[in-house]
Computed example of a mutant assay.
Amino acid sequence: MTKPVTRRHLVVTLAAPAVLALLVGCAATGGAVVSAEDDQAALLTRAKAYWGLIQKNDRVGAWAYEELSKDPNATLEAYLKRGGIAFDAVEVRGVRSIEGDRALVNVWMRYSLPLLRVKKQEAVAEDEWRRIGGVWHHVQRRSVMFPTAQ
């Protein structure tokens, strides 16, 4: 025996998933619904601040922007040992993409590798960022030669 479908039953059946998705979305963003423009603006602000610190060679300040800083196994000391690149100029050129909690930012840079006596090289990089706890963090690139190195 089938029950007739009432208007109330139909509304509850169709609205429940939408309400649940909205609540989950609010919980993921700390209770606030963030527009795509605000999300991009927050990412660009963080990226510009991070790259400004890197250009000034303020690696201690930049540590707070790194995804690694959220890893209990990573240390500031180990992070400071990485490097060897001097950035002469850096320009964050915009957000390439945001997909969930991952993003790519276009960054132009002019850099030198003093130990190798290489000067004034230019590149445009796709800089990876990850949202952790509602805040964007820079993702350290893994070494091409040593992909398991941290």
Rank of each mutant, 00 (worst) to 15 (best):
W136V: 00
V11A: 10
V139N: 05
G61F: 05
S97C: 04
L76N: 01
S35E: 07
R7V: 15
W51G: 00
V95C: 06
H9I: 07
R59T: 11
Y65C: 05
L22A: 15
G30P: 03
I98N: 00
V144M: 09
K70N: 12
A21G: 12
G100R: 00
E67P: 02
A62Q: 03
M1K: 08
H138K: 14
A62F: 05
A47K: 00
T2C: 04
R117W: 06
H9M: 11
R130Q: 14
L20C: 11
P4V: 11
D71I: 07
R110T: 04
T75K: 06
R141P: 06
R7F: 14
T45G: 12
I85F: 06
S35H: 09
E66W: 03
K119W: 13
D38L: 07
G30C: 03
M1D: 10
K3I: 07
L115C: 03
C26V: 10
V90T: 15
A15N: 03
G134S: 10
L76Q: 15
S112A: 13
R82V: 08
L23M: 12
A89E: 15
E37T: 12
H137S: 11
A18C: 10
W51F: 14
E77K: 15
K81I: 05
R8P: 01
V135R: 15
V33Y: 13
A64S: 15
E122I: 02
R96I: 12
P147C: 02
L14Y: 11
R59Q: 12
R93Y: 04
K56W: 03
A15M: 09
Y111I: 04
G25A: 08
H137F: 11
T45A: 15
E37H: 09
H137V: 04
G94M: 01
R93G: 10
G100E: 02
D101I: 07
L80V: 09
D58A: 10
A62G: 03
L43T: 00
